[in-house]
């Protein structure tokens, strides 16, 4: 457990050494590290974390969005990175302002992000610019609204 903690902080340190501007904030909670990355540095930071030999975050476990309505910036996009070789996990977070949120895609770094980003687009309306195939994935193509947003009622619009 302890060695993992050190390893995680090393990842944050590596990121800082590489470009201090890519780390806007570091959040520690329950032994998990979250690095808040400014939007313009996201893809660069992702490429660095995936290719840096001592980190090798080559696996994107998950990509998900949280809607903090009515706060601004409204959306948080979370990237759960995993390094199989170094047995590390790290969460990147990008804060996005609504109501037409837009984030650069990370499909060029992790192709698995394709469907994850489609899901976030489908359910939260986040536009991932540069995405090869940004269509709805779970909801019907002609659906109106974004169901997982907090201003969308649980039982739907009637």
């Amino acid at each position: 457990m302890e060695s993992q903690e050190i390893g995680k902080n090393a990842a944050v340190q590596k990121l800082r050494d590489w470009d201090n501007e890519a780390v806007a904030e570091v959040i520690e909670f329950r032994g998990e590290t979250t690095v808040v990355v400014p939007q313009q540095h996201l893809v660069r930071a992702a490429k660095f974390l995936a290719s840096e030999p001592s980190l090798r975050f080559t696996f994107l476990s998950d990509l998900t969005t949280v809607d903090r309505f009515p706060m601004e910036p409204r959306f948080e996009v979370n990237y759960h990175l995993l390094s199989i070789e170094r047995v590390l996990r790290l969460r990147l977070r990008v804060r996005v302002t609504g109501p037409e949120p837009s984030v650069p895609t990370v499909t060029s770094v992790w192709p698995t992000a394709n469907w994850h980003e489609r899901e976030s687009f489908d359910l939260f309306g986040i536009r991932f610019h540069g995405h090869p195939d940004l269509r709805r994935i779970l909801m019907p193509d002609d659906w109106e609204g974004y169901p997982l947003r907090k201003d969308y009622p649980v039982e739907g619009f009637r």
């Binding site: 909670f29 998990e32 476990s61 998900t64 949280v66 809607d67 979370n78 759960h80 996990r89 969460r91």
Partner: peptide
């Protein structure tokens, strides 16, 4: 309030649960 990600090995692979709390009795996300 806070966020956690917990992964387990389900028969099909990594089942991850991401949970965000805002300090209320219901999960925020």
């Amino acid at each position: 309030p806070g966020e956690v990600y917990q992964a387990i090995e389900s028969p099909r692979g990594e089942l991850g649960v991401f949970m965000a709390s805002d300090g209320s009795a219901k999960p925020y996300r």
